[in-house]
Design a protein around this nucleic acid. Structure first.
Lengths: 216, 216, 216, 216
DNA sequence: CATGAATGAGCATTCATTCAT
DNA sequence: AATGAATGAATGCTCATTCAT
């Protein structure tokens, strides 16, 4: 007796991530969490297209039907997984960014992001896949998440100007983007080639860009 | 007797990447080029998994069988397409880097890369997909290509020290990596959201990192 | 979670033949039986290679996917079909061989075999195809079945010595083999050219060899 | 400029086997012989359906097109190969059967057949496959060959009556058939499981049936 | 004579999705 | 709330066959 579900999944800003698009009202339940973990886990190997619903269900120890009972479709599940992961990532970065010095706040946030992506390679892998997807089956969720992350970084970068002299011939948006790119590449590289750098070193590397941004 | 893989497009390495399964010598022929173009074209829409062999063949104006006659498998074709695209990319960057001033050489090479990736979104899309794949069907090609690009950037960065004071507490390898990430993110962002920046601006942004690297 | 192979029809051996790839326990279900019947039916026309999974599914009244849900692959299905048919054949022969006189027991068993093969030409056709296959996709099932049938005949032949004088310059193994060959050739000939002999006559013919074996 | 070729291949009794159905008039040429050898060789592994035209051409060291230039179709090639092999087999048996004593003539002919089939497992494999094929693509060649072999054996068996007392309650046709089956099974068994018997022993085994036939 | 390139119908297989229980 | 069985459209791949050179 499952109710039909809307195709469009709106990313719920500020409100509980999963709730909005769940098949049935109510909070993310235990089965859904199990499926999220399993999916994140397995997604580190092959990206969403290469990962089958059966794989995920098996890893989560439930049947395929259960995935459909809980999410209605693979697409929806991926979508909500993305939201789930992004929420956690943002939460980590937010906590870490609680520093008075804006440079330190940014460094600390990037450090947290690097740690998170290292520990959740499946999320990183998934995000990359979705981030650069195009065509018919594009979901707006990715854009919304990207916007949230970007906004978060942008605000941290804006704060730099309150204490440092920053270059005014470079857009904050642009700087945020390449910082984003640097962090991602560092994380994915670790996943692929093993950690050749400590998270601290990675964060310092990413801050090089900021050092180029701060100054005349 | 049928050509499963042509040596032709083998990416410029000391040892041919796909030699093991190569069946015959000879140059990349017209059909293979047509297929490469078609594949690059289509790949900008949905990544390799979402792109079917039939689609590629149709766009190239040949039959599905022809793809298999020329490449033997989808995987092999993708692999060689990657090599083909990388060869062109590196060629562009090499030509552009012909400047006496090492900073300008680097900036110009990055500019060329940004242009190339903008004009070949399919290649960029494909590369991203392969770059972070793992598991059974991983092909070493991606690693080799990545290594070549990284080596190229690394050498340009090394040259900076001949004229500028550079930070010695950051590894050149690491700097190369985040430059790589920045360029990629800039390019993919353009593909996804339309060009909000000129290529020149994008190149300057990427150089911010270098500016952070150059100085005491 | 899906049943690729059922343990059910595993041919009566000490160790299940296909155990390695079995996914779940449980009895041979209705769908699998339907598929066996359909496959045996169709196989009489063209051997396993010429028979498509689609044909079998259609004749069984299920979808192609169902075949794969139940058996995992065409090869596995053929394998289990062989086991299924062999089990039935051996059962028939076993029942028929219940005679005190060893010669009569053997004759009766051969008669049963001839009847069975006549009524299941698909099984005979399949077996012939597999029996002499070689190369990469060889499955051990055929050997195991052959060994069982041979062992059964061998034992019946051994019993002859308890009542008759038999030639000791001919190996029981060899005699079993040519009896096997005679029965097969008789059956297949009927299938190809129509029944020119009654099963009784066929059985008597096969017993000629035994008559040559019994005597000084 | 290849002339079209008739689908129906008539088996040329008593006349050169290959000539009748060759695309162009004239004797079997070198290329055709090379292809026959290659096909016989490779056919021992997988039967005609599993053997591709490409496999045969490759083994013969010619191109696929050459097969079609020489035979017009795979079917025709197989057909002529069958004729070619049968002609050789019959020739061997004929030479071997030149004995005054009919029993010895038969034994010797069977011995020759066993040797031939052992040395040409591809022919045996091919024949078995064709012998029990059914359906639309049945070629009459197999029947004609079978008839020739059977006639040959039948005549040898008929001669037995000139010197031995034979059973009159068993048809010569039937006896020929099971001798045929015995020889085949012995040969194929050797191919599959290695030679556990010398050809002499195999021939003696097959003669058991004759011993059952000779006597009151 | 021979062949390399191309073809396309046909086939085994995968997998997201449905649904009765 | 969960699931096992079934589905069928989609897809990668094979291979006999054609044909221009």
């Amino acid at each position: 007796m499952a109710a039909q579900q809307a195709e469009t999944v709106v990313y719920a800003h500020q409100t509980p991530v999963v709730e909005a698009s769940t098949r049935r009202p109510g909070r993310t339940n235990k089965t859904q969490l199990k499926l999220f973990e399993a999916a994140m886990d397995i997604m580190s190997e092959g990206g969403p297209t290469a990962t089958t619903v059966e794989d995920i269900a098996e890893r989560a120890g439930v049947s395929k039907g259960t995935v459909y009972y809980n999410f209605g479709s693979k697409k929806t599940m991926i979508d909500q997984l993305l939201q789930y992961g992004a929420k956690l990532l943002l939460a980590e970065m937010t906590v870490a960014s609680d520093h008075e010095d804006p440079r330190e706040a940014l460094r600390s946030a990037l450090y947290a992001a690097i740690i998170y992506l290292r520990e959740h390679p499946g999320f990183a892998r998934l995000w990359v896949s979705e981030l650069w997807r195009a065509g018919a089956d594009w979901s707006p969720t990715t854009d919304l998440i990207r916007a949230d992350i970007m906004r978060f970084i942008r605000e941290l970068i804006s704060r730099l100007a309150t204490r440092y002299a920053v270059r005014t011939d470079r857009s904050i948006e642009g700087v945020s983007l390449i910082i984003f790119g640097a962090v991602f590449m560092l994380s994915m590289d670790e996943t692929r080639h093993g950690a050749e750098r400590t998270p601290e070193e990675s964060a310092e590397l990413a801050m090089l860009t900021i050092d180029g941004y701060i100054q005349a």
